[in-house]
């Protein structure tokens, strides 16, 4: 704890900030959808979730249908200060979710039900951590991965 800072060497923030409560609500819906998929073994439900993940990964988590529900239904009912966060970690987390969903789809199409179940379980576990404890696993991995560069 003896680091001396010089302002000149630091670059300012230039990223997009989003309402930090949005991704958590989206994670809650993701938990519901993924657990439905897991119980019913429905390929179509996983495909629907994969599309949501894809929008979140490529356009940003603030553009998914879940985020639209958050904006129109949930957000007007929330009080207090609006916590914001950098969009990039949750966006990365969406791509991790997409990867698991695609793996599950491959498992289903190639008739490997174990792959379907395992991939979905991982995605569900991550979404559950986010929804229940506001702990976004993908977001945590994000900066750690960048650090390795």
């Amino acid at each position: 704890m003896s680091q001396v800072f010089s302002k000149e060497s630091i670059q300012a923030t230039k990223s997009i900030s989003i309402d930090a409560r949005g991704p958590r609500f989206s994670a809650l819906l993701t938990v519901l959808v993924l657990s439905t998929a897991l119980v019913t073994h429905s390929l179509w439900v996983v495909i629907a979730q994969a599309i949501v993940f894809a929008i979140g990964a490529f356009r940003g988590p603030q553009f998914t249908p879940y985020a639209a529900i958050f904006r129109t239904v949930i957000r007007p009912r929330l009080k207090g200060e609006v916590p914001t966060e950098d969009v990039r970690p949750p966006q990365f987390a969406q791509s991790v979710g997409l990867l698991f969903a695609l793996t599950a789809i491959v498992g289903s199409l190639t008739s490997v039900p174990l792959l379907f179940t395992i991939a979905l379980s991982f995605a569900l576990a991550a979404a559950f951590l986010n929804a229940a404890f506001n702990f976004c696993l993908g977001c945590e991995i994000y900066l750690l991965l960048l650090r390795l560069k």
Binding site: I10, A12, T13, L143, L146
Partner: peptide, 15 residues
Amino acid sequence: IEIDAEANLDLVRKL
């Protein structure tokens, strides 16, 4: 002061 972590990865590692 807000600092963009991704634009300052050296600092991120150092701190």
